[in-house]
């Protein structure tokens, strides 16, 4: 794996995703072109129904596009079978969900170990790596706790540790702070910032501008298309000017 920071890791070419509901077909994604470099921190924003979840599912190889091609780390994923996609999800992608999705009956350690089971790690190295990862997210003293003994923020940290334990190329987070209060959210976002500074590529889906502020690049979507794609500074300037215009109009 090359560590060249400007290497393109994700390339979407005219990606479409069409859902068939009865006779109607819904274009959830309508020709997306997108390129992501290693160590980018991207926030995907947009109203609900804009296709950002579908985009996340396709980026995370949970779903297949109905048209176009998706290269992940130079590999055409549209040609892979279910087993190949599972392997990619296991080794290249880490998921963080809004509702944590931890196994309630298992300890934090077991939860973090889980992806390693599927990458056929031995019992001992599994434990070691999971422990190390939990220490990295600041939960070294909580490895034996079950999810119901952890706070919301701690749960999400466990989930992040689980997503990171296989050393994924990209970390996909779907509204990671949606179920957290603002103070805890700041902690989680600080953790993302830290991971980003350590070289992790992060893609974040969110509604909240305050969350998106942490990202270096902001992609806004509507109706299955990318409507703006620019750096955080440009985006802010753009928003300000738009707001200004709306402000004038409202006057």
């Amino acid at each position: 794996m090359s560590t060249k920071p400007d290497r393109i890791i994700i390339r979407l070419e005219k990606v479409t995703r069409i859902y068939k509901v009865g006779v109607e077909s819904i274009h959830a994604l309508d020709g997306i072109d997108l390129q992501l470099r290693r160590n980018e921190y991207v926030a995907v924003m947009g109203p609900s129904g804009s296709g950002k979840s579908t985009l996340m599912n396709i980026l995370g190889c949970l779903d297949r596009c109905t048209g176009g091609t998706y290269f992940l780390d130079g590999r055409d994923t549209t040609r892979l079978g279910a087993g190949g996609l599972a392997r990619i999800r296991n080794t290249q992608i880490g998921f963080v969900f809004q509702s944590f999705e931890l196994l309630g009956r298992s300890s934090a350690l077991k939860n973090v170990e889980m992806p390693l089971i599927y990458s056929r790690e031995g019992w001992w190295s599994r434990r070691k790596r999971a422990k190390k990862m939990l220490e990295r997210v600041g939960l070294g003293d909580r490895i034996k706790h079950r999810p119901n003994q952890l706070s919301g923020g701690e749960k999400q940290r466990v989930a992040i540790a689980r997503a990171m334990v296989c050393g994924p190329s990209i970390l996909l987070a779907d509204e990671p702070t949606g179920n957290l209060d603002s103070k805890t959210s700041e902690g989680i976002l600080a953790l993302f910032d830290q991971l980003h500074s350590e070289g992790q590529t992060i893609i974040l889906v969110t509604h909240e501008e305050s969350v998106a502020r942490h990202a270096s690049r902001i992609i806004r979507m509507t109706d299955g298309r990318i409507f703006s794609d620019m750096s955080f500074e440009q985006d802010r300037a753009n928003r300000a000017s738009l707001n200004g215009r709306f402000g004038e109009m409202s006057k």
Binding site: A86, R87, N90, E101, P115, Y118, C166
Partner: peptide, 16 residues
């Protein structure tokens, strides 16, 4: 069901 979904998301093959 959710657990199965999660396991699949973190890389469990259908066979697993």
């Amino acid at each position: 069901t959710r657990e199965i979904g999660l396991r699949k998301a973190v890389g469990a093959r259908p066979s697993a």
